[in-house]
Amino acid sequence: MLYGIAAAIAALLLAALLAGVLRVPGLRLGLLDRRRARPVPVVGGIAVVLATVLVAGAGEWSGVAPLGEGVGTLLGAGAGVAALGLVADVWRLRGRVLLAGTAVAALCVVPYGETGVVGGVLAAGWIAGVAGAFRALDHADGLAGTVGVVTAFGVGACAAAEVLDGVAVLLSVLAAALTGFLMHNWHPARVAFGACGSLFAGFVLASSAVLVRTGYDAGSSAGVLFALTAVVSADAVLVVLARRLAGRSVLRRGPDHLGHRLRRLGLTSRGVAVVVGAGACASVSVGVLVHGGWADATAVWWVAGGALVAVLGLVCVKGAGARAVPTARVSTQVRGNVRGSLRVRNG
């Protein structure tokens, strides 16, 4: 117990420190979020990954809080996914490449002895999908970090109920690291998550949820897993539906996510993070209650109904009047602004 508290505090402080220290090098190297019109370096994810791996790894190495064989493999696979995301932050990679790489990592952490081959493959596909959806949720200040913290606490509570101490420790460390990152990512953000951090967080959260639900029947597990990740699932469904209705490619980026549409309804950037975070808290709470047996499994249908109403309501929100600036153009403009500001400072 005491180690868990100490580890969480260490992860929070380390992530906050690293995010602040890495910001200037990120600006100078041009590691910027290409979806933003202002220079926001994507070093927050690096800070979260390093803080989580170092603190959780220290507990494993010292023997004070061993993660266990399966959890250690999960953390290693998550680090591999983070490395792939970092490559995507530096050099543009197709979403299919990121999805395929994440799926391969997921295949390495699924407990086939309990799920079977078919169930394990389906679980790996779900993990990869959630990680990709979590990356897509990183389109507004404080959004992905807030949902990540709430989800980590929820899945961690489920792990504690199953006496999976290694998973619970890992998720408490991840939640603390995400909180430290949010100190710099709350609007106006000074650092962004990037593919490195968002894929890592989504992968660890989804993989941990699968481990927690191992041994339960497939139907109830699907409901609990959906409730724990309802917000990212709703965002993904909203984007796919909106783009198909508009006759656009699903893979083409655009301002049609949850955060974008809530902003058009008049919410501020901070208001969007609070509203979406509250929705995540409600759905995750249902997932925890159903997993623990404190609520009937039919409660998940209320979560599904709420998500459906939100998606159908937001899909009717009209798009922004101004066309989005192409990605490459935004990146060039931002890099030029950064270089110009640095020249002025040096002069």
Rank of each mutant, 00 (worst) to 15 (best):
V117S: 05
S269T: 13
L2S: 13
G194L: 13
G78M: 14
A195T: 06
L225D: 06
A206D: 10
A236E: 03
F153S: 01
E69V: 15
L98I: 06
R248H: 14
W301N: 05
G120M: 01
G70R: 08
A128S: 12
L143F: 10
A100Q: 00
G68M: 07
A227Q: 04
G76N: 04
W126T: 08
A65K: 03
W301Y: 15
A65P: 02
A79N: 02
W91C: 07
V110M: 12
A192L: 01
R253H: 11
L143I: 12
E60N: 15
E162I: 01
V147E: 01
C316G: 04
P25R: 15
A133N: 08
L74H: 08
G26W: 06
L32G: 03
L174A: 09
V204P: 02
G142F: 03
L314P: 09
E69Q: 14
N185Q: 05
T332H: 04
V212A: 04
V272I: 08
A100H: 00
A79I: 04
L308I: 07
R36L: 11
V290S: 04
G306D: 03
T115E: 00
V24L: 02
V286P: 05
D296K: 07
T179H: 03
C196H: 11
G259C: 09
V330D: 00
P39G: 03
G287T: 09
L164P: 05
V231L: 05
W126Y: 12
A124G: 10
A189I: 06
T298C: 14
F226V: 15
P326S: 08
A320M: 05
F181N: 11
V274T: 14
L258W: 01
F203N: 03
V167E: 05
A16I: 02
D33A: 09
L164M: 10
S285I: 09
G347H: 00
V155N: 10
G305Y: 06
A128K: 06
N185A: 06
D165P: 03
Y3T: 15
H291Q: 13
A10Q: 06
G116P: 13
G148M: 13
F193A: 10
G166S: 00
L267V: 06
V300G: 13
G287C: 10
L211W: 00
A310L: 12
L74N: 07
S208R: 09
A230F: 02
R252Y: 03
F134E: 00
V104Q: 04
K318N: 01
R252V: 15
V300L: 12
R252K: 13
L241G: 03
R36A: 11
G259S: 15
A273D: 08
A133V: 08
D33I: 13
L98Q: 13
A175H: 15
F181T: 13
G101N: 08
A176G: 10
V231Y: 02
R270Y: 06
A222F: 09
L262W: 01
R323M: 07
G154E: 00
A123W: 10
L13K: 09
A175C: 11
G129A: 11
R343H: 11
V232Q: 00
W294I: 07
G85V: 04
S249M: 07
F200I: 00
L245W: 02
T332D: 03
A209I: 04
T102E: 15
G116F: 01
A11S: 15
G313V: 01
A100V: 09
